[in-house]
């Protein structure tokens, strides 16, 4: 993107309504290719990755303008290589990073060149390419989305698993419709997993794109509980997903539309 930024929009913003604030500039340490962003409501912090500088950046929740991060995880001891997607567990005070063949877990308040607390890595993990991670602190599991070329899976681990751990559940197979997976969220009170699928992001308008909903209790080759998409939805290439539980809304970032769409989805909550 010619201009990297993190923009904040009012929940009820529509069409061309301008952002309430924009975080951008040299001091922010932001780069393009921010494939994940997390808001920690307990500690009022924003987390994003910078894959070009192999770093995780943590900002104040109300950060604005050219404001630097309050903490940066970066350096050789971190083992960060392609911190494409990040997750925060505010209950257990941890930051989780999908890092290609591994999931790295750091203390939430880590700053600088720190070693991971735990690493899930090894042949039994099934990580061909760990693309995203989400933590469910109520049910005490983490979900990792694993993508390869036209194959993908959602793997459920115990939250404290480490090393060459075998996933407790694996959702994968032709009935799932999973292929190239993007940002992921969990909804712990009901054990849902939500994942955006671009199918093949190298195409401008790929087929088989959707937002799928599974349960953390699902296993095997099972179709999604709900499959969001279709003509009315106008979704073309959903890549990002967030939940607003209070208003029972699912918020989707669509790459092809260059837009943010909000859906009312009371069944989910």
């Amino acid at each position: 993107m010619a201009h990297p930024q993190v923009a904040a929009f009012a929940r009820l913003a529509k069409e061309n309504e301008k952002p309430t604030r924009q975080l951008a500039g040299q001091k922010t340490l932001l780069a393009r290719t921010m494939h994940d962003i997390r808001y920690d409501a307990i500690h009022d912090e924003i987390l994003v990755g910078n894959p070009f500088a192999q770093a995780i950046l943590v900002f104040r929740g109300g950060a604005n303008g050219e404001e630097p991060p309050i903490r940066v995880i970066q350096g050789p001891q971190t083992q960060l290589r392609s911190p494409d997607r990040v997750e925060v567990d505010p209950v257990n005070n941890e930051i989780l990073v999908a890092n290609r063949d591994a999931v790295l877990v750091f203390p939430r308040e880590a700053h600088g060149d720190v070693k991971p607390l735990r690493i899930i890595r090894g042949p039994d993990t099934g990580f061909r390419s760990a693309r995203a991670v989400a933590v469910d602190a109520i049910n005490n599991v983490i979900v990792v989305n694993v993508s390869g070329s036209r194959t993908a899976a959602l793997e459920v681990f115990h939250r404290t698993d480490e090393g060459n751990a075998k996933p407790r559940r694996v959702i994968s197979g032709p009935k799932t419709g999973l292929s190239e997976l993007e940002q992921m969220q969990v909804y712990p009170p009901r054990g849902w997993i939500l994942v955006a699928q671009t199918s093949d992001s190298s195409f401008q308008e790929p087929t088989d794109t959707f937002v799928g909903v599974w349960s953390i209790r699902d296993h095997g080759d099972v179709p999604p509980r709900w499959k969001m998409g279709g003509e009315k939805s106008t979704l073309k290439k959903p890549r990002g997903i967030a939940l607003n539980a209070k208003n029972k809304e699912v918020i989707v970032a669509d790459m092809r539309l260059n837009a943010i769409l909000t859906f009312y989805f009371p069944e989910l909550f």
Partner: peptide, 12 residues
């Protein structure tokens, strides 16, 4: 300034 939004979050 939205450009290839690869992710989204909600600030509750």
């Amino acid at each position: 300034g939205i450009g290839n939004p690869g992710a989204v979050a909600y600030d509750s």
